[in-house]
Design a protein around this nucleic acid. Sequence first.
DNA 1: GAACTAAGATGAGTAGGACTCAGGATCCAA
DNA 2: TTGGATCCTGAGTCCTACTCATCTTAGTTC
Lengths: 203, 203
Amino acid sequence: MSRTHFVDEREPMDRDGGRAVRADARRNRVRILEAAEAVFAEQGASASTGAVAERAGVAIGTVFRHFPTKPELLQAVVMNLLDRLISEVDALVDDPEAGTALFDLCARVMAISTRNRALFERLAETGTRVHVGDALARLRPAVDLLLERARRAGAVRDDLRPDELVALLSAICQEAMTDEWSEHFRHRALTILFDGMRPPAAH
Amino acid sequence: MSRTHFVDEREPMDRDGGRAVRADARRNRVRILEAAEAVFAEQGASASTGAVAERAGVAIGTVFRHFPTKPELLQAVVMNLLDRLISEVDALVDDPEAGTALFDLCARVMAISTRNRALFERLAETGTRVHVGDALARLRPAVDLLLERARRAGAVRDDLRPDELVALLSAICQEAMTDEWSEHFRHRALTILFDGMRPPAAH
DNA sequence: GAACTAAGATGAGTAGGACTCAGGATCCAA
DNA sequence: TTGGATCCTGAGTCCTACTCATCTTAGTTC
C-alpha cells in the first residue's frame, strides 16, 4: 500500500492536453489551502473568502481561480486534511494479526477523526457537511483486504460486506466528532459495533 | 406517554411575566413555518428568507421577528418536523412484547427519519446540520422504559445505557438519510446494531 | 538571452441575501 | 371606545460570494 499523496504533490505538471501548470500557481494553491485551514479553524467556516485571501497574501480573485466556489474551497480543505489523516492508517495493512487488524483499523479511524474534531466541528456548524464517507472511500482497498483476512480467521461474521462496514464506521465517526460524544461514548460505540461485526454466538 | 405537541400549540398564551402573545402573531408564526418547510423542500436551504416571507404572505421583517436568524428558522422547521415524526413512535411504548418493542422502536425511528429524507438532505446540503440527536432526546423516556424492560427480559446486554443507544441510533439515522444509503444498507446497519445490542453469546 | 504568448494574478465592481429600524397598523384589556 | 403595547411593514444598510477587464509573469523558442 503506497503512501497517500499530500497537497503539494497534487495537480502536478499536466493539464489535460495543455501546458504544464505554472509554478507560481501551484505555490499559491498550497498557500491558499494552508491559509484556509488556519482561518476556518479560528473563525469557523463562515469566515469570508477575503480573509483567506489576505492570510494567504493573495488577491481574492486568485482564491476564486483555484476554488471557483466557497464550498469547493471548504471541501478541498477537508479532503486535504483527511488525506493526511488517512495516510496514517495505511500502515495497519501490514499488521499480521488477521483477527485484530480490522478492529484496530476501525479504532484508529475513529481516533484520528476525533483528534481534528475542532476544525471539523467549526466547518460543520456553518454548513459544509463534511463527507467523511468520500474520504473513507480511499480506505476501501485496505478495508477489503483486512476484512477478507479477518473473515478467513473467523473473527468476523460471514455476511459483512466492506461497504456496509465503511458506511457504518463513517456514520459513527461523523457523529462522534460532535462535542456531545465523550471518550467513553466513543469507546462504547466501538464496542457495540465490534460485537455486531463478530460472527453470531462467537462473542 | 402523552401525545407530543404540534406547532400551532406552541408558544401559547403566556410570555414570561408579560402579556399574552397576540393572536395574529401566533397565526403568522405557523404560516411562516409552513411556508418555510415548503420552500426549503423545493429549493433547498439556500432559498432566501425573502422567498419564505413571500410564500407566507408576510413582510420579511415579520419572519425575522419570529426567527431572528436564518439558522434559527431552519432549526425550527426541523424540530417541528421531527416533533411530528416522533409523536408517531410514542405508541410503541404500549407494546407488551418486551423483547421486541425496543428493536421495533429503533427500526421505526430509522424508517421515519428516512421517509422525510428529501427535505433533510436539502437542508443538510447547504449547511444546517440537523441535530437529530436533539429531537431524539424527546424519545428518552420511551427509550428508558423499553430498554429497562428489554434488559429484564434478557433481550439486551446488561451494560447498554440509554444515552449510548440514542447516540448510536442518531448517528446511524443521520447518515442513513444520505442518498448513498440504500434500503439494503439501512437494513444491514440495523442488523449489526441489533446484534451489537444483544447480550454476549446470545445471538 | 530577448522576444513572445498563454496562464495566472489583480482588485474594483456587481448581484444578491441577511438583517435593521422608524413609523404605521392591530390587537386586546379595561 | 380608547390607550398603549405588541406586532407588522419594507425600504435601506452592510456584507459577502463571485466576475472580468487589465496587467504581470512563467516558461518556451530560436
